[in-house]
Write a protein that binds this DNA or RNA. Structure first.
Lengths: 227, 227
DNA sequence: GTCTATAATAGGATAGAC
DNA sequence: GTCTATCCTATTATAGAC
C-alpha cells in the first residue's frame, strides 16, 4: 500500500476533531447566553454553519456534547493549575497561586465553572474519562498543602481532610459569589474575586505554624492593612 | 348587605391561598427530583390532584410560580436568621449563629438554596417584592458585624464591605460545597457543612481586635485543637 | 459529510363547556 | 374552579437522498 493513501486519512481526522472543537466552542457560547442547562443544538448548528442533524456526525447525543465540554473544562482547569504551580516557589506560594488561578479560571470561564463545579445539568453524570482530570487536581492541591507543611509554612493540621476541605470551600466560595453577584465582570473588576487574597491570608493565619509567638506578634492586623 | 355574605368570601380566599401553598410545595418536590431549572407544571398539577390548565387559576405563568418560590425562600431565610439572632447574645455570637443557620438552611432546603443563591433558572429575574427580604438579610448581617466590632470582639475592619463580603463568601462556600459534593446529606452528616465552625474561627482570628498581643499568644493553634 | 424531511415528544398556554 | 380539547412551539433524534 502506497504511503500516499494514509495522509488524507489523517487530514480528515484532523478536520473532524477540529470541527468537534468548533462545535464545543459554539455550545459554550449558547450556554453563556441561554443558561448552562439550556443547550440548544439547533442554535449551535446555526453558529457553526451546519444544520442541526449534521451535528450527529460529531456527537452521538446532546449528553455527549455536555460530557465533552466537561472533560475539556476539567483538562483546562488542571492545565491552569499546573501552570500556576510551575511558576512559583514550592509550598505556600504554590498553594496561593493555585487557588488564585482557580478563581481566575472560574471568573473567566463562568459557563465551564458552572458545569464543572455545581451540578447545573440535572441528568448529567460525567463519564469516568471526563471526570478523571479532577482527581489530579485534588492530588496537586494535597501535594502543595503537604509541601507547605513540610517547609514550616503551615501547621500540620492544614494537611488533613478538614484543611483541604476548608481551602476548597474558601476558594469556591469566593468564585461562586463573584459568579452569582457580579456576573460578567472580570477578575479585577468584581467585588468578590479579589477577595481570594485576604481569604488566603486568613487561611494561612489560621493554620500558622505553632511555637511562633514571635511570628504571631508580627501579624499585621486587618486594620493596619486597610487604614 | 347582611354580614353572612362576607364570611364565605374569606373562606374562599383562605382556601385559594392554601391551594397556592400546596402547589408551591409540589413544585419544590418536582424541582428536587428533576432539577431546579426543570419545573414541569403538568407534573406539579398531577401531584396536587389537578389538571395542568387549572394551575392557571393560581398562577399567571410558570415564571410566577418561580417568583413565588423565590419570595417564599427569601422570607424563610430571613425568618431563620431572625430566630438565630434572637436566641443568642449580641455581637460575635449572633454573627456565628446567623452564619451557621444559613448553612443549615441551605443544606435542609437545597432546592430553595439553588434558586436563591445561584442563578439556576436562566430567564428568571425575581420581582422587587420577592427580592425585598434579602435586603433585610444583609442589613441584619451588617448590624451583627457592627455590634461585634463595638463590643471589641472583632477589629473595626470587619465592619466593612470587604469584611462582609468575606463572611458571605466563606459561608456560601461551605454551603455550596456541601450541596455540590455531598448532596442529600444532612447538616451533621456531610463533610462540608460542619466546616462552618472552623471557618468562623478562622474569620474571627483574622479580624481579631488589635492591641492584644497577649490575646494573640492565647491563640490555640489548629494542631492543639485537633490532636 | 451534509442535506431535506420528518418523526416523536413534550410542555406552556388559551378557549370554552360545565 | 375545574375540566376537556386544542394550539402552538420548541427540540431531540432518525431516515434516507445526494
Amino acid at each position: 500500500m502506497p504511503r500516499s493513501n494514509e495522509v488524507p486519512i489523517d487530514r480528515q481526522r484532523r478536520r473532524h476533531l477540529q470541527s468537534r472543537e468548533e462545535i464545543l466552542d459554539a455550545a459554550l457560547e449558547v450556554m453563556d447566553e441561554a443558561g448552562v442547562g439550556d443547550l440548544n443544538l439547533t442554535e449551535v448548528a446555526r453558529r457553526v454553519g451546519l444544520r442541526q442533524p449534521s451535528l450527529y456526525q460529531y456527537f452521538d447525543s446532546k449528553t455527549a456534547v455536555y460530557d465533552a465540554l466537561f472533560e475539556r473544562g476539567m483538562r483546562g482547569h488542571l492545565a491552569v493549575l499546573r501552570d500556576a504551580a510551575a511558576g512559583t516557589a514550592p509550598g505556600l506560594a504554590t498553594l496561593r497561586a493555585m487557588m488564585t488561578a482557580t478563581v481566575r479560571f472560574s471568573v473567566e470561564h463562568p459557563v465551564l465553572s458552572h458545569l464543572l463545579f455545581t451540578q447545573s445539568v440535572p441528568g448529567l453524570t460525567p463519564s469516568e474519562r471526563a471526570y478523571r482530570p479532577s482527581l489530579e487536581v485534588v492530588a496537586l492541591t494535597r501535594a502543595a498543602l503537604s509541601t507547605a507543611v513540610a517547609r514550616g509554612e503551615l501547621c500540620a493540621s492544614a494537611d488533613s481532610e478538614q484543611g483541604l476541605s476548608l481551602l476548597i470551600a474558601l476558594t469556591g466560595g469566593v468564585a461562586s459569589q463573584q459568579l452569582a453577584n457580579d456576573p460578567g465582570t472580570g477578575f479585577d473588576q468584581g467585588r468578590y474575586a479579589r477577595l481570594i487574597e485576604p481569604a488566603l491570608d486568613m487561611y494561612a493565619l489560621y493554620f500558622a505554624p505553632e511555637g511562633g509567638d514571635g511570628r504571631l506578634t508580627q501579624h499585621v492586623t486587618p486594620d493596619e492593612r486597610n487604614p
